[in-house]
């Protein structure tokens, strides 16, 4: 069991099969879930804001597209906008960039994770869910190195297993769970002090 440490935020990386997984996960979280959730979901450049609107519609918790210089607050899910990297600044505010793709992706999970690790240190939960490729592995390693904890979806439970598999090879996760168990785990972690 990781020591109890008063988490400040949850960051999530997700790709192939993401929409359905996110619908179920975010849909099961209460409106007053105390931590901000910051998410990079790989989407094509022309996607627009449809994804955030769609999830906001079906979830109790508030889902929005991340704005730059926005201070993430509890009870809110921040999705990376299409064709931008999403980052966390040292002061905890969100930042965006149009820097070149990382791991062929913009937004990239590694970019979010690495910057969030710097900002939140041991107060961070990093979560790698279903997806193809290796985006998120390096970032998860950084999160662990800075004292945060790593959660990975059980590859057998994932629509696409290579992102979780690569994450498990990169770090020793604190939790490997099926997506159905994620809401309960998030609620438990959010209550640790």
């Amino acid at each position: 069991m990781p020591r109890v440490q008063g988490f400040k935020a949850i960051v999530i990386g997700i790709s192939t099969g993401g929409v359905e997984t996110l619908k179920a996960l975010l849909g099961a979280l209460p409106k007053d879930f105390p931590l901000p959730l910051i998410i990079v979901q790989h989407i094509s450049p022309g996607s627009g804001r449809g994804m955030a609107d769609l999830l906001d519609e079906v979830c109790d918790i508030h889902v929005k597209e991340a704005d730059e210089q926005e201070l993430p607050v509890g009870g809110t899910v921040y999705l990376a906008p299409a064709d931008y990297h999403l980052m966390v600044e040292q002061d905890g505010k969100l930042g965006l960039s149009t820097d070149p793709p990382v791991n062929y992706a913009r937004p990239s999970v590694d970019v979010l994770f690495e910057t969030a690790a710097e900002a939140f240190g041991k107060g961070l939960v990093g979560v790698v869910l279903t997806g193809a490729g290796c985006d998120g592995s390096r970032g998860l390693k950084r999160i662990k190195a800075m004292g945060g904890i790593a959660v990975v979806q059980n590859p057998e439970d994932a629509a696409a297993s290579s992102m979780p598999n690569n994450a498990i090879m990169a770090v020793t996760p604190d939790y490997i769970v099926a997506s159905a168990d994620l809401p309960r785990l998030f609620i438990k972690l959010s209550k640790s002090e």
């Binding site: 990297h85 980052m87 966390v88 600044e89 040292q90 930042g95 960039s97 820097d99 970019v111 690495e114 910057t115 710097e118």
Partner: peptide, 9 residues
């Protein structure tokens, strides 16, 4: 300049 992207670069 915003630190996160500057530092990455």
């Amino acid at each position: 300049y915003a630190e996160a992207s500057l530092k990455r670069r």
